[in-house]
């Protein structure tokens, strides 16, 4: 018969989340933290309060997403005239001007990725809470993708910083960044922390409990 494969936790081991070294999980005095003997990072069998923290950050992200889309992110002024653009109106303007290629890029970075990220994290959280039978390997893959793509949402913010610095021709042409950009930047940072605080091992823990 095939030997049952153990997880580190089942074998009473802890792996360091930074350097990967394995340690025997021995109890320590109350109030003292277990530290990795190699790199000094705090050792946890699972990320602490992973579900609660991820929920809190996902909800913060959803709330911040409202001002990020309601407030304008930048204003382009040409010959003294200009209207402030929100994320969505900026993308629509790009399509109307025939700039399809960058319209699509900005849509993916500023709308699709943040929304997808929040939706996927909510689904992953629910799947752990309610022990869904969704294939854990697929879930791990989805999690890893969401974790990798998050930073690309900063694209719009970086672009605004470049335009604001470059386009300063006074009456002729001027780009001013607006408050919505700060809210959107906060969405990106908060959702990045959200995906970092989710522990994909929880997906597999629950799976094991079923067997």
């Amino acid at each position: 018969m095939k030997k049952k494969r153990l997880t580190a936790r089942e074998a009473s081991l802890i792996s360091c989340h930074i350097c990967g070294k394995l340690f025997r999980d021995i109890p320590v005095a109350k109030g003292k933290r277990k530290k990795c003997a190699r790199c000094g990072a705090t050792l946890h069998t699972r990320k602490p309060e992973s579900l609660a923290r991820t929920w809190a950050l996902v909800i913060s992200g959803l709330i911040l997403y409202i001002p990020a889309n309601v407030y304008p992110i930048m204003t382009v002024t040409q010959f003294g005239r200009g209207t402030p653009d929100t994320i969505i109106s900026g993308i629509i303007a790009l399509f109307n001007n025939g700039l399809w290629s960058i319209g699509v890029i900005i849509f993916v970075a500023s709308v699709l990725i943040p929304v997808l990220k929040l939706v996927v994290l909510v689904l992953l959280l629910l799947s752990v809470h309610f022990r869904w039978k969704w294939n854990p390997r697929q879930r791990t893959l989805v999690y890893k993708i969401v974790e990798k793509i998050g930073k690309w949402s900063m694209l719009d913010i970086f672009m605004i910083s470049i335009l604001a610095a470059l386009v300063k021709l006074g009456f002729l042409l001027n780009v001013t960044p607006n408050r919505g950009a700060s809210a959107f930047g906060a969405v990106v940072v908060v959702t990045m922390f959200a995906s970092m605080s989710f522990d994909p091992r929880l997906i597999w823990d629950r799976e094991h409990d079923h067997e």
Partner: peptide, 17 residues
């Protein structure tokens, strides 16, 4: 603490490989 150099725990699912 005891070392386990021949084993490595998966970061995503915690399985010992």
């Amino acid at each position: 603490m005891m070392q386990h150099q021949h084993l490595i725990a998966c970061r995503e699912c915690d399985l010992l490989n």
